[in-house]
């Protein structure tokens, strides 16, 4: 993975980006309602798959905007990129 296609700017060198970790995590608005286990789940448990992974990227040295990507973590191939608010793209293997 030498370049990443930013959905705002097009294909750019990987050096311009910062990884933002797993995408589509939802924070419970009333965290005081959560049990310790549920709170630990939100804080510490991440998908970490060997295969397709939906993740956030930040084009920090470019347009400075966030976006989402689906990447195969075994081959580091980026399968799709999409803007925040858009649904996770349907990506075939």
């Amino acid at each position: 993975m030498l370049t990443i296609p930013c959905p705002w700017c097009g294909e750019r060198d990987v050096h311009e980006f910062r990884s933002g970790g797993e995408a589509h995590l939802k924070r419970e608005s009333r965290t005081d309602n959560l049990s310790d286990a549920e709170w630990a789940d939100f804080l510490f448990l991440r998908a970490n798959p060997k295969g397709e992974h939906a993740e956030r990227w930040y084009h920090v040295h470019g347009c400075r905007r966030w976006f989402n990507a689906v990447r195969n973590t075994h081959t580091d191939t980026i399968l799709a990129v999409y803007k925040p608010g858009e649904a996770k793209s349907e990506v075939s293997q």
């Binding site: 993975m1 030498l2 060198d13 050096h15 998908a47 993740e55 990447r71 973590t73 580091d76």
Partner: peptide
């Protein structure tokens, strides 16, 4: 490398 990966290779940067 800052992203999750199993590639046993990593980025050149």
């Amino acid at each position: 490398d800052p992203y999750v990966s199993y590639s046993q290779r990593g980025g050149f940067n």
